[in-house]
Structure formats: structure tokens, C-alpha cells
Simulated assay, not measured.
Amino acid sequence: MTIRTLTVLAAAAGLAACSGMGAKPPMYSQAGLPDAVKVPAGHTVVMETVGAGDITYECRAKANMPGQHEWVFVGPDARLMDRAGKQVGKYYGPPATWESMDGSKLTATQVAVAPAGTGNIPYQLVKANPAMGSGAMQGVSYIQRVSTQGGVAPAAACGASNMGQKQVVKYQADYIFYRAV
């Protein structure tokens, strides 16, 4: 073989080895989720994010249960990152709001929840309200909260002596955004 032939073969082998680099990762699959939190047919994934941050709870009197208290969910405060770890938005509330770095944002209405294991906030499916502003959130129809870690109400006592006290807990979850096709 000539040097030229070897050079061409080496270049071809290098290109073949790199052909998988930069390939788009496979789309999120709902296959392992409980039916209650699956997005209805006719919708496709348009964005996958990882939310990491805090959930605030407040010690309050239980409704219609005199003398009893409980930790009540107040709201989230999290950064939304893409799969590469770059911040693409934020999630905060109340009301629960997903906001893209491009300024578009939306709120949503809970459709269903399903258990996600001890110590983890539940899986959740929400139906998006129309987005405010143009950008990534425009046209989003559903958002799933999956792969949850932490975020449950504090284990600390909640009673008359600490009513009104707030506790912040760490959490992480994937937020999968869908649009109608």
C-alpha cells in the first residue's frame, strides 16, 4: 500500500469513529412511568430539563382539624438545566411557573401525581396554560416531573409552638416538556 492509500484509510477510520459524536440523544421514554402521569398520545417531547433547587414548606394548622398541624408546601425555587448542565431556565412559585432564559414562561394545572419512592416528591403531570411571551415555552401542552430526588416535607416536628415556621428542603427532578403534534 502506498502512503496516500494509508492516509485515506486512516482518515476514513477516524470519520467512522467520530460519526456517533454530537448525535442527538434519544428522546425521553414514558414507558416506565405509572399510567396516571403519562402524557396523552398526540404530544411529543420538545425539551428535557433537570431542575435542582429548594422547596419551601411552612408549619400550619390542618384545615378542619383543630389542634393539629402539618408542613404545607409553599413553593419551589429551582434552576432548570439542559442535559449538558447549562442553565436554560428557572422554576419558581407560587404559582408554579416555568420560565425559559428567553423570557417566555407558563403556569400549569396539576392533572395527576404518582408515588416516586420513599423520601421523594411524587411524579407529576401538569397541563400547561398558554405561555406568556415568545420562546421555548410557547406551545408547551404538558410538563412531566419525573426522576425525583428528595423534596418531601421536613421530618421536624410541626406544632403550635412553631406554627408559621418555614423549612427549606433540597430536591432534584427532571421536567419533560411536550407539545401537541
Rank of each mutant, 00 (worst) to 15 (best):
A131Q: 06
Q87E: 15
K90I: 12
G151L: 02
G164L: 09
P115F: 08
G133Q: 09
S134T: 13
A114E: 01
L125Y: 03
I143N: 01
A108H: 06
V146R: 11
V140A: 08
P130K: 11
R179Y: 04
S134L: 07
Y178P: 02
T109C: 04
A180E: 11
K127F: 05
A173Q: 02
Q87V: 15
A96P: 08
M101A: 14
Q172G: 14
A136G: 01
Q110V: 15
G151T: 07
S134A: 14
V152W: 04
V88M: 12
V152I: 15
D174V: 03
T118Q: 15
A153K: 14
G164N: 09
I176M: 04
G151E: 00
V146E: 12
Q138W: 00
Y91L: 11
P130T: 05
I143F: 08
Q124Y: 10
P95R: 06
G159S: 15
A156L: 13
Y142M: 11
Y178N: 01
A96N: 09
A156M: 12
G150M: 04
S141A: 15
N162Q: 08
A180K: 13
Q167P: 02
I176H: 00
A112M: 12
A114T: 06
G119A: 13
A153D: 04
M101P: 01
Q144A: 03
Y178H: 08
S104R: 03
W98L: 07
V140H: 02
A156K: 14
V146N: 10
Q172Y: 04
V126E: 03
A96D: 12
G151C: 06
E99M: 15
A116F: 02
T148K: 02
F177E: 01
V169E: 04
I143Q: 02
A114Q: 05
V168A: 09
Y91N: 05
Y123C: 05
G135R: 03
G150R: 00
Y142S: 07
A131C: 10
M132W: 00
P94F: 10
V152S: 05
W98G: 02
G89T: 08
G93E: 11
G89Q: 06
A108D: 10
A157V: 14
G151S: 07
S141K: 13
A128R: 01
Y92I: 03
K90L: 12
T97R: 09
D174L: 02
Y92L: 11
I143D: 01
A180F: 03
S104V: 06
A96S: 12
P122T: 05
S104I: 05
N120D: 09
A131Y: 04
N120R: 04
A160E: 11
S104Y: 06
M137T: 00
K90G: 11
R145H: 10
P130Y: 06
G135S: 10
G133D: 10
G93T: 14
R145N: 09
Y178D: 00
G103Q: 13
Y171M: 09
A136S: 11
Y123H: 15
P115N: 14
V168C: 06
S100W: 02
